[in-house]
């Protein structure tokens, strides 16, 4: 396990999680990817989902289970996650482009249309993406949700941005 050495989830570790959608569901369009691998006491993602697509149940240390067919990728669970571990991945954003929505708590916020460095889980800049959406409703409580475009093959790599 590399996660406990450097904080970076590998693809193998990710795919084993019950809160990461399968390839087939990903191909259909926007869906959440919940990168929550440990039995920590936390469940705000569960009530955040209006569709009932995220189940933690009891005890609250359960790893969330994503009901991938109920999730429409609305992203309402992204900001409430105290671990900033939820992302929306839309493989059908454009012809060759995917969109990744991620929680962002740095200042200043990017503007819509701004080019930003797209960072992978190691913090390496792997692409220059375009910000297509910046959501900051008060219900997100100062966690912005930023949507950035990336090539499809980087959709499961990009997890942060740098201005």
């Amino acid at each position: 396990m590399t996660l406990l050495k450097d904080g970076v989830l590998t693809n193998e570790e990710l795919e084993a999680l019950p809160c990461v959608p399968g390839r087939e569901r990903m191909e259909k369009g926007a869906v959440v990817v919940i990168e929550c691998p440990q039995d920590i006491p936390c469940n705000p993602c569960e009530p955040a989902c209006p569709k009932g697509a995220i189940v933690v149940g009891g005890p609250i240390t359960n790893i969330p289970v994503l009901k991938e067919d109920l999730c429409d990728g609305c992203g309402l669970c992204v900001a409430p996650c105290p671990g900033q571990a939820i992302f929306v991945v839309d493989l059908n954003h454009g012809n060759d482009e995917a969109a990744v929505s991620l929680p962002y708590e740095f200042q200043p916020l990017p503007d819509k249309g701004q080019k930003v460095k797209a960072l992978n889980r190691r913090g390496e800049a792997v692409h220059e993406g375009t910000v297509v959406k910046v959501l900051t409703p008060s219900s997100f409580d100062r966690t912005a949700v930023i949507t950035v475009t990336v090539p499809k093959e980087l959709a499961m790599e990009v997890r942060s941005i740098r201005l």
């Binding site: 996660l3 406990l4 691998p37 440990q38 671990g83 900033q84 889980r121 997890r159």
Partner: peptide
């Protein structure tokens, strides 16, 4: 030899470019 706190917090650092050495 291993990160002590919640891994989600460690991942927040890693993806913003912080190197973690155990």
């Amino acid at each position: 030899p291993e990160i002590g706190g919640y891994s989600v917090h460690a991942s927040k650092l890693a993806r913003n470019g912080v190197k973690i050495f155990t």
